[in-house]
Design a protein around this nucleic acid. Sequence first.
RNA 1: CGGGGUGUGGCCCAGUUGGUCUAAGGCGUCUGGUUUGGGACCAGAAGAUCGAGAGUUCGAAUCUCUCCACCCCGACCA
Length: 408
Amino acid sequence: MKQSQLFTRTIKELPKDETSFNAQALIRAGFVDKSAAGVYSFLPLGWKVVNKIKDIIREEMEAIDGQEINMPSLAPKENWQATGRWDTLDVLFKTAGSDEKEYALNPTHEEVVTPLAKKFIYSYRELPLMVFQIQNKFRNEKRAKSGLLRGREFLMKDLYSFHANQEDLDTYYDRAIVAYNNIFQRFGLGDKTYLTYASGGSFAKYSHEFQTLTEAGEDIIYICESCKMAVNKEIIADQDSCPKCGNKDLKEVKAVETGNIFKLGTKYSEPFDLKYQDKDGEKKLVIMGCYGLGISRSLGTIVEVCHDEKGIIWPEEVAPFKIHLLSLNENEIADKIYLDLKSQGVEVLYDDRDASAGEKFADADLIGCPYRLVVSKKSLQAGGLELKKRSESVSRIISSDAIVSELK
RNA sequence: CGGGGUGUGGCCCAGUUGGUCUAAGGCGUCUGGUUUGGGACCAGAAGAUCGAGAGUUCGAAUCUCUCCACCCCGACCA
């Protein structure tokens, strides 16, 4: 992508109506635009990151036998009345159609996926079944805050699993934990993300959250450093030690809930009467699990965790582009390198603008691609191009012949 | 939802004891020229219902009332 053609530009000054780092950096660097409190557009750079995140999630969900689907954002009022949540869930956006039929803008999809599953699950032979989607969710938060960390419309992956019995759910749940760990590892958040015991609501003793350590988070958790588990403050009263090793020396930290997985049991199969016929011929309630992961929230979290005073430092797997190629008045040579890299499938953002060196360097730091490649008189005299990692301060010269093989 | 704060060209802002405000400056944009290793310089240009509505007044960005939006703290967060 040529930066001269890129939709949106970087801005020098901090947006005055944002104080969270993720929102400031993402707006300044041109990744997102805010249209209302907690409602953001993703611009080309931001959407590229979203798609990297989606690809990772998709791979890991398919690896645990999830099948991707897409459910509607609108759900008829009756679905939400069936579980009683039409009246009790205060974050539910409600809207009316022209026929005065009322709908919910789905904040989660148990009320949609359960009746959907009912249409296709009849026998134990169809279980287990796992479906997931990556979709916009709507929650009418009393107060949207912290940039992308708490929005009213946001991107989320939600997977739902259907099982014949509790043991099968338990086994699958553990596989999901492994998949989630892989995902956060690939996001570059592995070291900072803790599997955390949290409230299970009315239907299970505990749920598990994936909490990523950052001061920008609004949750308080207690971490056990020896086994990398944590306990959410909300349940610390009944769980004052590490649930895994019994360690009582827990450390209080702030974190953001990037994922949350639940054993739903029959909470939703009951109201929708989702049953299957077992080997013995008996009709039994399907046992369910749900597994959420905030995509836009993860994006914001990555920015909170991976940055310095100059800007974002994208982990390689989620970076909008691998390389930021800067031409300092050497567009002829840079054009060629750009085309070479592109033809080899290397993702390059090429700063071909007629801008000063200082502006290009500042933008490269702000946007935060993992590698910066500079073509200038100076670099050519030194024997090629200057290559620098965004995360490091040292640079080195590589010959133009070696670039493609080095960076592919 | 309670408390606090802020709304002035696309962005950041000055101006608010009412009076050359016919709204200043910086960034960005456009034109011309000079520049090019850490957000360059010169000259010129375009761009504003001063958040909205109502009111007070000879006169309102400035005062009053109502409303709206955004940010922060708190509460809330299957």
